[in-house]
């Protein structure tokens, strides 16, 4: 896509949600969220399991009707103009829903036909997509014979068959091995360069940092924070983190003596985290107190720290 077009269109809103709400019975899965995604942007939804990310994605995909608030996608109302909106979307659901009764290339062909694309156009398109997903050799396999990574790539390729304006990716790399994740990141980055608007949910912080221009952290259906990865780290964490271990018996008792060291202190059963501009300086202070950690580690603060700070360390199932 030519650069100037991208720039010119950059302020155009693709998705606008205001007070967007989804209730299942009495349960509020998405609780009045507001956000806007503009053309060519890569927008990330972060949050623990059950935060309401998939529900939000489904509403954007025009396959789940909102129960409150407003949602405009490409200037249209998903509750009434579902097929028209879906014509412009590419969807990669959290769970692959490839057609098990069809072969790899047939999955692409049939999915393209669902959009009403011609067979002639699709013949060429399928070749491009198979190459894109590195599945050329598997074209005649049944989808069950594919590995998890291959299935995911095929699902993504399938979502591109109509050359969508917006690509929705719900946890695109969960369950993949590191190689497969990196291949996917590379592919997604190329799409972004071509001007496709990406909406991605994930709970991998490295993924969010790699792929997203802007993030929204969700928890229990609400927005906890919004901004670019760097902004969020700056706002919700320190520059560095010091991790010290005194053995699981002693951490709690030692913690009392560490008061006043660092900007913020967090005591876990197995270690103590100290958030500070400089981790080394804190470590010196601790040693000066006559305490000897079993291990210590100074690292840069990451989105993960932001995430845990905002959504807590409690595991929700």
């Amino acid at each position: 896509m030519p650069k100037e077009v991208r720039k010119e269109a950059s302020a155009e809103a693709m998705i606008t949600a205001t007070g967007l709400t989804k209730k299942y019975g009495d349960f509020v899965a998405v609780d009045g969220v507001n956000f806007t995604v503009t053309r060519g942007e890569s927008f990330g939804l972060l949050g623990p399991n059950g935060a309401g990310k998939s529900t939000t994605m489904k509403m954007i995909a025009a396959t789940s009707q909102r129960t409150g608030g407003n949602l405009v996608i490409l200037g249209k109302d998903p509750n009434r103009q579902g097929p028209e909106i879906r014509a412009h979307l590419g969807v990669v659901p959290q769970q692959d829903n490839l057609d098990r009764e069809l072969k790899v290339w047939e999955n692409l062909m049939v999915y393209g036909r669902y959009f009403g694309l011609s067979r002639k156009f699709l013949k060429g398109k399928i070749e491009e997509l198979l190459e894109f997903a590195q599945l050329g050799e598997k074209r005649n396999s049944k989808t069950e014979e594919l590995s998890g990574g291959m299935k995911r790539r095929l699902t993504i390729a399938r979502g591109l068959v109509n050359e969508p304006e917006i690509l929705l990716l719900d946890e695109p790399t969960t369950g993949l091995d590191p190689q497969a994740r990196h291949i996917l990141w590379d592919r997604l980055f190329r799409l972004k360069e071509q001007g496709v608007t990406l909406v991605i949910t994930t709970h991998y912080m490295d993924e969010a940092e790699q792929l997203c221009d802007r993030l929204m952290v969700m928890d229990k259906g609400k927005i906890m924070a919004e901004g670019s990865p760097a902004e969020l780290i700056k706002k919700y964490s320190s520059r560095e983190v010091l991790e010290v271990r005194f053995g699981s018996e002693n951490n709690a008792s030692v913690a009392g003596r560490l008061k006043g060291i660092g900007e913020r202190l967090e005591v876990l059963p197995d270690r103590i985290l100290i958030y500070e501009e400089s981790g080394e300086k804190c470590l010196e202070q601790i040693i000066k107190l006559g305490l000897e950690p079993v291990t210590s580690l100074v690292r840069r603060s990451s989105l993960e720290d932001v995430f845990l700070r905002l959504t807590g360390r409690t595991l929700v199932e």
């Binding site: 103009q81 097929p83 009403g116 109509n162 050359e163 496709v196």
Partner: peptide, 27 residues
């Protein structure tokens, strides 16, 4: 490879064939 090209316009036109007609929300 080009993922956004002229063909997409026709594709969208086909996909939107029944836009605005009666029952476009289900058919």
């Amino acid at each position: 490879m080009s993922l956004i090209n002229a063909a997409v316009d026709s594709a969208i036109a086909i996909a939107e064939k029944r836009k605005g007609k009666l029952g476009a929300g289900v058919y």
